[in-house]
Amino acid sequence: MTTEDAVTAPGATEAAVSAAAVSEEAVDTVTRQAVDSLSATADPRLRDLLTALVRHLHAFARETRLTQAEWERAVGFLAATGQACTDTRQEFILLSDVLGLSMLVETVHGHSAPGTTESTVLGPFHLTKSPARELGDSIDLVGDGEPCVVSGRVRAADGTALPGAVVDVWQADPHGFYDVQRPDAQPPGNGRGLFTADTAGAFWFRTCLPGPYPIPTDGPVGTLLEACGRHPYRPAHIHFVAKADGHAPVTTHIFVAGGAHLDSDAVFAVKDSLVKDFIPTDDPCLAREFGVPNPFRHARFDLVLERA
């Protein structure tokens, strides 16, 4: 009840009005004191971030009338999220992803100059270093999926090739698992590769068609999704990070056109420009040239970088 409610409520007493006013003043005092305590923070950006965080957290608690039991449950959830993190699993990134925060930060700060590749989330599985590979190498070290070739160029928005650009790729296997999730079934580095574009800015590699998959649901984030009645699935995709001298790096995906969950990605990362055809190709000569069985899938994707 606000002070105004107490005043206008039928039968309101002076004591009720006074109690409401005191309560509101006490709440304001706590927030003011917490904000004031940050005034000596030496780093101005840190001071601004913490000040805004305190104000928004306090406003959330006031708006929702957060109870002590709810606060304790939230603290327990965050503690469990931290405890679920390992060298090969980042539950906090996963939490940020499913709340849309990762995509929001990427949208606010992502590179979206006209004609450049749109950015999207890094995801929680870029935890191990991709092995350096030669152009045309396969990142599929298991070979139990539909063969696929991905090719493209790294260039500037004006079409200028960016020779020597570095292209880092990683993906799930056809069953929807990354190498770090199933070390008993996938060798380290499966589905990963670090490629250097040629003098024309071109790159290409062999792989398998990735499958859609559920994000890990055996931890706190999975419990949260279940409580919200949300599914955990991501559409099939391949991750890219492209870098070139004098240009801003881009973190992005390509999504397999026509696949499931494109309209309900659990981490809100799908953008129309990143949905690409993985074209069924029946061409024995081209298959021999690429070094893949025929028929195969072929996806073409140019990475267009913004000047730094």
Rank of each mutant, 00 (worst) to 15 (best):
L94T: 05
D43N: 14
L46H: 13
L53K: 02
L46P: 03
S37D: 14
T86C: 05
E91K: 09
H58K: 00
W71A: 10
E91S: 15
E72V: 01
R32L: 10
L57S: 01
W71I: 03
H56L: 08
E70H: 11
A34S: 07
E25Y: 04
E91W: 03
D87S: 13
G82H: 15
A61T: 03
T86H: 08
R47N: 07
L94M: 12
G76T: 06
L78S: 15
S39H: 10
V75W: 05
H58D: 04
E25P: 00
D87G: 05
R73V: 08
L94V: 08
D36P: 02
D87H: 06
L57A: 05
S37L: 11
P44V: 14
F92Q: 07
E25N: 07
E63N: 06
C85H: 08
A80S: 15
G82D: 14
I93L: 07
L78T: 15
F77I: 10
V54W: 00
E72F: 07
A80G: 14
R47G: 09
V22R: 10
L53T: 05
F60Q: 12
H56W: 07
L57Y: 02
T51E: 08
A26R: 08
A26L: 07
A80D: 15
L38R: 03
L46Y: 09
R65D: 12
Q68P: 01
P44D: 06
S39I: 13
A34Y: 01
L38S: 09
E91I: 05
V27F: 05
T81Q: 14
S37E: 11
G76F: 12
A80C: 09
A42M: 10
E25W: 01
V75I: 13
T31H: 00
L49P: 02
D48M: 11
V22A: 13
A69I: 06
H56A: 04
S39G: 09
T51V: 10
A74K: 09
A42I: 08
L66E: 02
T81L: 15
Q33P: 00
V54Y: 02
E63D: 12
E25K: 01
A40V: 14
I93W: 03
A59V: 01
L53S: 03
T88V: 11
Q33T: 07
V35E: 04
G76P: 08
G76H: 10
H56T: 04
E25Q: 12
L53E: 07
V75Y: 05
F92K: 09
D43W: 11
A84W: 08
Q83M: 11
T81F: 10
L53Q: 09
V54S: 00
Q83G: 04
T67D: 03
E91A: 15
E24H: 04
L50E: 04
A40M: 08
A42K: 13
V54Q: 00
A61V: 01
Q68F: 00
T41V: 15
H58E: 05
V75D: 11
R62W: 01
V35H: 00
L78P: 05
S37C: 11
E63H: 11
E72Y: 13
T81A: 15
L53M: 11
A34F: 00
L46T: 15
V75A: 11
G76E: 13
D48Q: 15
L57N: 04
F77V: 14
Q90N: 13
A80V: 06
R55M: 09
R45Y: 10
C85W: 06
I93K: 03
H56Y: 06
Q90P: 09
